[in-house]
Design a protein around this nucleic acid. Structure first.
Length: 210
DNA sequence: GACCAGGCACATC
DNA sequence: GATGTGCATGGT
């Protein structure tokens, strides 16, 4: 298994090159993006984030000061905007009340403890929590998403019913726990997923993993 | 017009 | 515990 996962990584990296994830200027922006991208393509999320930037509210306390309706209107382009406004506010409440809205204090928190706290915020599930840990806070946690499962399934490396934790363990038990590696690997999986391995599209003969 | 996108919570069985 | 459904815009 170790060789398989290393081989997949090497092939993806040599084909696509570094992906420079996450697209975002600050850790806080990465966190906001992680929540807004749930079930949505990144282009739409970028429009929503641009709206927040142009209004000068891409900062924890300013964002939390916005009425929920106003926040929802600003993030409208990314879809599910009412639910995401609520989820953002749930996170902001946790972040401001528990950590004073201070990213450095989040980073100082032990990673397993923080993961549990993030998962207790309504609207933050395993993928969003792990994206925050890895891409905003630089913790060595592997992010699993729909593309990851689809890729492993199509290469017969997992079963159909594998859980999030099982897929995550597969990577974390067989790779060096390295932030740079986990960062790049997940980004590469999304890249090959978008370009070659979309839903309802059977395996493609020009896929770099063929 | 159908399908899909870097999920999650909740209801129901 | 598994399975289904609502949430919603915008690109292909």
């Amino acid at each position: 298994m170790k060789n398989n996962l290393c081989l997949v990584y090497k092939k993806l990296f040599s084909f696509f090159g570094p992906q420079a994830w996450w697209p975002g200027e600050t850790a806080f922006e990465v966190i906001v993006g992680a929540i807004l991208t749930q079930g949505t393509n990144w282009q739409n999320v970028q429009k929503a984030i641009d709206n927040l930037k142009s209004q000068g509210v891409l900062e924890a306390k300013k964002l939390y000061a916005l009425p929920e309706k106003k926040l929802a209107a600003l993030i409208r382009p990314c879809g599910y905007y009412n639910i995401k406004a609520r989820r953002l506010r749930n996170f902001l409440s946790f972040f401001i009340k528990g950590y004073g809205g201070n990213i450095r204090r989040l980073i100082q928190r032990e990673e397993g403890t923080l993961r549990g706290e993030l998962l207790s915020v309504k609207g933050i599930g395993p993928e969003t929590a792990d994206s925050i840990l890895l891409y905003a806070l630089n913790k060595p946690v592997f992010v699993v998403d729909a593309y990851t499962k689809r890729l492993l399934l199509r290469h017969r490396l997992i079963k159909e019913d594998a859980t999030y934790g099982q897929v995550q363990d597969l990577f974390m038990d067989n790779l060096k726990k390295d932030v740079r590696l986990f960062n790049e690997y997940h980004a590469l999986i999304v890249k090959v997923g978008k370009d070659f391995c979309r839903k309802n599209k059977p395996r493609c003969s020009i896929c770099p993993l063929k």
